[in-house]
Design a protein around this nucleic acid. Structure first.
Length: 1029
RNA sequence: GCCGAAGUGGUGGAAUUGGUAGACACGCACGACUCAAAAUCGUGUGCCGCAAGGCAUGAGGGUUCGAUUCCCUCCUUCGGCACCA
């Protein structure tokens, strides 16, 4: 027998795996698949960090075990190679980022191969490879096509001395990381992706996946759905204020204007009676709008400018004391009690959440309380339950000092006040999300160019398309509500592109009456001169038809979405299952059977479209017969065919597509046709952003100037590039079909491999990356391009590896551990084992090089066991039991990612075998197979040493037999008054009486009883006897 | 400030439907082998105590025959954050 020489055998087996393509996936698609995924690394110049191997090794173990369980396993690797560090390196050295990236990838590849991972190396992806980012660009254009990409003015971090835009990461303590100069917020037009449209869907999707609780909670908190109300407060000049007449600005008191309102969002509308002042965000629009009222503008402006310099971090973490300025010259009226209350501007209110204005309830909100204390504002109790003079009370309780809400509990009071506000038209129930749209532009070189051009000519044409007076009526259905679901979004979007939109909240929606609804709609201020589009959803569809008939005016387009038809009672099961009662069902029936003059409706309607969805519980497909006339008409007109059954498209998107939304919104922005993709990066001389804040691409005139793919005229390219997140939002899809040059991945490959079965990554990516990639996948699902709504079935996370001093590893601290050195010193297998053994996988743990030695010793022991292997079967029952116990423990521990205890049970097994004279080949084979997933090289070598010719990678994983686990003797603990006084070995099937008797009769126990009679004797089966005296 | 996780020997950690606290490994000590060292093997190793025994899972309290595990109060450390109204 040779000495264990890791260097030699590791090279040997790595070559074997490569030559034999051992870990390339099988083409056989009848075999059950398993897709395990790790976050692909950013190939930095310093090479692999010991943090990387932790998740890579863990998922390698999972993948290797799955192969031995008989699955067709895909365990891919790639490189997320666009990014700031490479770009900054290019700025410093002038070397092209592509060149540097290629070198770094080569180094990473060498290191990853050295670690013996079972990656399918034939499927490597690189986000900076044009054959990859061609599809990143193509996917972006799908967002653009569906109206989910739009341009908006957003603030960027601007370094005043470098004159370039900075990433958040480059702003340290409010200063520029490069030069230490001041940083301020500056506005720039940026491309946005409308992830907020998917807020509900991203939240709901979490129900269908198996994520570790922290990941799920973080996603939920980030999306941040909260229910509350928006409430309008009327602004009045403050005539009482003497000060305002003689203020610094010198302006006179502004005459009353009755049309100025400030709208606030609150999750606690029940505390409206306790609102004693209002606060506006300094960077919000309201302050600017109200400038005319404000008599101390100089002071206010100074405060706003100061707030601009503060980062969000300063406004949150560092600032203990709240600051603010009272707006002199104006007050607002609390609509619930007509009290005049003062208005402040203060930076504890953010412009980008809600409306940028809050009603302050110091009695029941901690932040408002602090502010009120400082500025000596009234603190009013409206919920009983806590002492509000000491601190704000935000808990549950009974309403007081609140007029008609008195004596109600918080939940009821919320409902009551919302319906009161809605009735008076001063507020409404509202769902608010924390999630904001995604800024998708970067003014950088080293990213995917955004494949759009701007064409003046086409922009002009599209403007002409807009007509003067366009009005849209949105009609909701039964139990519906104008504020619910997607109606508010739709209203916002349509208003944004110039429509006037009516969303009437129809009366008695629980038990509607057709005449009443139609009468209500006829009151809307629309007439024959207008261009009218009517949208009816669900029960709103027959209402819309009846409305057209009764109003008797020309309609440009009638859009019916998931309409109800003349359902018979036998079709009502679907309706009942969603909770409608008999009374409501009767209403629907009456609605639908009401006579409609279809000829008349069709003659009034210029164009009509019906959307049916196959999976709508309300709508049986049989209803299509109810709209025969319309159906025929649609065929005749639109050429789109008949019922537009866009499965997978949301109803919201379907409707929006009827309004040429994207054309209106981004008029002039023309996508490159597919045959012009990929749009590659041009060669540049300098990698710095330009002085105007545009990316270096803007300086390359011959690249920027191009022709419009639509009209052939002259056009200019977009010079912004995509963020680093873009390529990583879909890489898991590309792995399924990495060399496809016709599609981003073929439907059959997607169908076989999606979704990812198990995705492990760092906690630092459980918010943004996870959310972004789920968003992309959900969108692609909705437009029918991927087969599953959720991309990842299961998500786990690993803890960080800290340096030996317990600090974070970093170059500047000089405490970085290099994997190359570890492998050189101890071998890959020992290194892998240590990485997995060092602590619980999901927790941070400090590196200890001495620990690796222990793993090497363990492997030496396993190696040396070869000598003792005999062909004969072992007869010893205890050993058989240990074999089965070890198989069970290792199998279960891998599934739970308890790798440390799995390895320790292998050590215990090995320690026992070491003490044996002879060991059976079968027993040793079990050890080698179990070990093979952790330490694959030594396992392959030992496997061939004991006479096998094929790789161990596809051998069957050992199975345990429960019946072999049964012990025949157990050790009972004997306690007297809770303290351990003796142990006794007894047969496992001992009876309770027998066990108690033996315990009481035990010599050591008599001493402790001191002749006293036991008061109580407790027996826990096969565990202990507890005696109480 | 908010949210999340965690506090166990000299060190990393094991053990939780409440049932012998410290598995496994590192380190350390002693012994064997060696001229010697390294490596390897063996023995020991929570703390106090000669011992009997007592004390021990961040601190304090509670429930229980019995608590690392459940409950309450407090302290500390780590991670995330967009003061989210």
């Amino acid at each position: 027998m040779n000495i264990y020489d890791p260097k030699q055998i590791e090279k040997k087996w790595q070559k074997y795996w490569e030559d034999n393509k051992t870990f390339e996936v099988e083409k056989d698609k009848t075999k059950e698949k398993f897709y395990s995924l790790i976050e692909f690394p950013y190939p930095s110049g310093v090479g692999l960090h010991v943090g990387h191997p932790r998740p890579f090794t863990a998922m390698d173990i999972v993948s290797r075990k799955k192969r031995m369980d008989g699955f067709n396993v895909l365990y891919p690797i790639g490189f997320d190679a666009f990014g700031l560090p490479t770009e900054n390196y290019a700025i410093k050295t002038g070397r092209p980022p592509a060149e540097v990236t290629a070198e770094n990838i080569a180094n990473f590849t060498r290191q990853l191969k050295m670690l013996g991972y079972s990656f399918d190396w034939s499927r490597v992806v690189d986000t900076t490879d044009p054959t990859y980012f061609k599809w990143t660009q193509w996917l972006f254009l799908q967002f653009h096509k569906h109206g989910l990409a739009y341009k908006k003015t957003m603030p960027i971090n601007w370094c005043l001395s470098c004159k370039i835009g900075l990433a958040n990461e480059e702003v340290v303590d409010g200063k520029c990381e490069r030069c230490g100069g001041d940083v301020e917020k500056r506005d720039k037009e940026q491309w946005m992706l409308a992830i907020t449209k998917y807020a509900d869907s991203l939240l709901a999707g979490l129900e269908d996946v198996d994520y570790i609780p922290q990941a799920r909670t973080q996603q939920e908190n980030w999306i941040g759905r909260s229910e509350g109300a928006s409430i309008k407060f009327r602004v009045i000049p403050n005539l009482k204020s003497e000060e305002s007449r003689h203020s610094g600005s010198g302006s006179l008191v502004v005459p009353p204007r009755d049309d100025v309102n400030i709208e606030v969002f609150t999750t606690r509308p029940d505390t409206l009676f306790g609102a004693t002042y209002m606060v506006l965000a300094p960077e919000g629009e309201y302050v600017q709008q109200l400038k005319d009222y404000i008599s101390n503008w100089d002071e206010v402006e100074e405060y706003i400018n100061k707030a601009k310099l503060k980062s969000d971090l300063e406004r949150t973490e560092l600032q203990k004391e709240k600051t603010g300025i009272k707006l002199e010259g104006m007050m607002v009226i609390n609509p619930v009690n007509n009290e005049e209350i003062p208005v402040f501007v203060a930076d504890y209110v953010l412009a980008n959440y809600g409306t940028g204005a809050i009603m302050a309830v110091p009695g029941h909100d901690e932040r408002d309380f602090e502010f009120a204390k400082k500025y000596d504002l009234e603190i009013r109790e409206v919920i009983s339950g806590g002492n509000i003079l000491e601190s704000a009370y935000s808990g549950d309780g009974v309403l007081v000092n609140s007029d008609f809400l008195n004596n109600k509990n918080v939940v009821d009071a919320k409902k009551e006040i919302i319906s009161w506000l809605e009735e008076k038209h001063i507020g409404k129930g509202k769902v608010q999300f924390k999630l904001r749209d995604w800024v998708f532009s970067r003014q950088r070189y080293w990213g995917e160019p955004i494949p759009l051009v701007y064409c003046e000519n086409c922009a002009e044409k599209s403007k002409k398309l807009k007509v003067k007076s366009q009005k849209v009526v949105l009609i909701h259905g039964i139990s519906g509500h104008a504020q619910e679901n997607w109606f508010p979004w739709l209203k916002d979007e349509l208003e944004h592109i110039g429509y006037t939109v009516y969303v009437p909240n129809l009366p008695h929606a629980e038990h509607p009456n057709l005449e009443e609804w139609v009468d209500e709609l006829c009151k809307l201020p629309i007439d024959d001169g207008d261009e009218i589009v009517v949208v009816g959803h669900s029960l709103g569809a027959p209402v819309a038809c009846k409305f057209v008939e009764q109003k008797n005016i020309k309609i440009k387009k009638l859009i019916l979405v998931a309409p109800t038809g003349t359902q018979q009672e036998k079709d009502w099961s679907g309706l009942k299952s969603v909770g409608l009662d008999e009374k409501a069902l009767k209403c629907i029936h009456n609605f639908n059977s009401a006579k409609k003059d279809w000829k008349h409706i069709v003659s009034l309607t210029e164009e009509s479209v019906i959307y049916l969805s196959d999976n709508d519980p309300y709508i049986p497909l049989s209803v299509k017969n109810d709209y025969q006339e319309l159906n025929a008409r649609i065929k005749e007109f639109s050429g789109k065919g008949h019922f537009n059954r866009k499965v997978g498209m949301t109803q919201f998107q379907a409707i929006l597509s009827e309004f040429n939304y994207e054309e209106h919104l981004n008029s002039g922005w023309i996508p490159l046709p597919e045959d012009q993709l990929p749009l590659e990066l041009p060669q540049v001389e300098k990698y710095e952003p330009t002085e105007t804040g545009e990316s270096p691409l803007a300086a390359i005139e011959e690249w920027v100037n191009t022709t419009c793919p639509q009209c052939g005229g002259s056009a200019r390219r977009e010079t912004d590039t995509m963020p680093n997140w873009a390529g990583s939002s879909w890489y898991f899809l590309r792995y399924m079909d990495p060399h496809n040059d016709k599609e981003f991945a073929s439907p059959e490959n997607l169908k076989y491999w999606a979704p990812v079965d198990w995705y492990n990554g760092g906690m630092e990516h459980t918010v943004l990356h996870l959310l972004y990639s789920r968003f992309w996948n959900q969108f692609l699902y909705d437009i029918g391009l991927v087969p599953t709504k959720e991309p990842y079935k299961k998500r786990t996370s690993h803890g960080m590896i800290l340096a030996e001093d317990g600090e974070k590893m970093s170059k500047s601290r000089g405490n970085v551990i290099n994997p190359d050195e570890m492998v050189e010193q101890f071998g890959t297998d020992a290194f892998r084992l240590y990485i997995m053994f060092m602590g619980p996988f999901d927790q941070a743990v400090a590196w200890n090089t001495d620990g690796v030695k222990g793993m090497r010793r363990f492997l030496d022991k396993v190696w040396n066991l070869q000598e003792k292997v005999v062909v004969a079967e072992a007869k010893d029952n205890n050993l058989t039991r240990l074999v089965h116990q070890t198989i069970k423990k290792v199998t279960q521990d891998i599934d739970k990612m308890n790798f440390n205890t799995a390895i320790s049970s292998l050590m215990e097994f090995t320690n026992v075998l070491t003490k044996e004279e002879k060991i059976s080949k079968a027993g040793y084979a079990v050890l080698v197979k179990l070990l093979s997933v952790f330490a694959p090289h030594i396992a392959e070598e030992l496997w061939s040493e004991i006479g096998n010719t094929k790789s161990i990678a596809y051998e069957a994983w050992p199975q345990y037999d429960e019946s072999q686990l049964v012990e025949d003797e157990v050790t009972l603990a004997v306690q007297v008054n809770g303290k351990l006084r003796a142990t006794l070995v007894v047969p496992a099937d001992i009876t309770e009486e027998d066990a108690k008797a033996r315990a009481l009769g035990h010599g050591d126990i008599g001493k402790w009883l001191e002749g006293r009679e036991p008061k109580k004797v407790i027996y826990v089966k096969a565990k202990l006897v507890s005696i109480v005296v």
